[in-house]
Amino acid sequence: MARVRLIALPLLSVAVFVLAWQVLAAAGWCGETFVPRPITVWRTAIQLSTTRDGVRGYQGYLLWEHLYMTLRRVLAGVLIGTVAGVGLGIAMGTVGWLRAILEPWLTFLRTLPPLAYFFLLVIWLGIDEAPKVTLLALAAMPAAAIATAAAVSAAPVGLIEAARALGAGRGQVIRDVVVPAALPETFTGIRLAVGLAYSSVVAAELFNGMPGIGGVVKDASNYNNTPVVLVGIAAIGISGLVIDGLLRAIERRAAPWRGKI
């Protein structure tokens, strides 16, 4: 019963949302440009995914090709950002003076909107893939680092002292006690990092973003093409849900002791 409820409630919420959307669009208060009908957005999604009358998708690329390029950029940025962030977090959580130095800089970077430094990255790195991946890595790194540092600092003192009493050295304590204890919260930080990278993807694809979902959204917005913008937003959101689900599944396998220590 619980599993049925777990599936039925999200589907019900989607149905209610689509119904409310249809009612608002049918009322005509905002106009088709601002609130297109759900069927219009669905047909647009079909058009972006197929070749019709010699027109292939959007700007010559199908929807899945745009999504693939965006996911490739996000994956590269998230991998770089989370690996660097987790490494920094472990170091900050175990070396107090290092945390005192780095945490203000990470917090400063975390509070900056992506556009605040994206143009600087374009000046430094050009308009190809480098500034896009760098932006996504910088968006992901602070969340992973701060969450990991907090988790490492909160590792159970009793387990650490027990390991030391059994003769474990500093490296062994970190490897066998601190890192496993911090792993669940580290995964939470990684999930936040992925979300922050996703929220930055449109900014990352402002320049030379074709193919890419962010480039599609940006280009379509220039022409008030709301259905295409909504399809792009849906593609980013749905793929983000899938990736978050995969991360939660990996977390359950990698850290089954969550909440038990």
Rank of each mutant, 00 (worst) to 15 (best):
G209L: 02
A8L: 14
P114R: 11
L75R: 01
V194G: 04
R73D: 03
V86I: 14
V83E: 01
T51F: 03
L9Q: 08
T188E: 13
W42H: 00
V177K: 01
K218F: 04
V229R: 02
A130E: 05
A137S: 03
A100S: 14
R164C: 02
A193T: 04
P180Q: 13
G169E: 01
P38T: 00
G214C: 06
S239T: 10
P10K: 02
R56L: 15
I233T: 07
R175K: 13
A145N: 02
V152G: 00
G57C: 07
Y58P: 11
L120A: 09
Y198R: 02
V133E: 02
L120W: 11
P36F: 14
L71E: 10
T82D: 15
A151M: 03
A235G: 09
A137Y: 04
G259Q: 00
I90G: 04
A26S: 14
L109C: 05
G259K: 07
W21C: 00
M210L: 10
V216I: 07
A204V: 08
T186C: 08
A204K: 05
W29G: 15
L75H: 04
A151H: 04
S153L: 12
R37P: 08
G215K: 09
V242T: 05
L88K: 04
L166R: 12
V122D: 02
L247F: 06
R191D: 09
I190N: 08
A155N: 05
V217S: 01
T50G: 13
L246P: 02
L24T: 13
D53F: 15
R175P: 02
P36Q: 06
T44I: 00
V95A: 10
A76G: 00
V173L: 07
W29N: 12
L120S: 05
L109K: 01
N224M: 14
I190S: 07
G237Y: 04
V228Y: 06
P104V: 13
T186S: 08
I236R: 12
L109G: 06
N225Q: 07
Q47L: 12
T186R: 00
A15K: 01
V14Q: 03
L159S: 06
L75K: 00
L138F: 09
G171P: 08
R3K: 06
N225I: 00
G171T: 00
P156Q: 02
A203P: 06
I123K: 13
R252G: 14
P184S: 04
G209E: 05
G215M: 11
L112R: 03
Y61A: 13
I261G: 13
G167P: 10
R73P: 06
T226F: 10
V95E: 11
V229G: 14
D53R: 11
Y117H: 12
V122P: 13
L192Q: 10
G232T: 04
V229I: 14
P156I: 11
M92G: 00
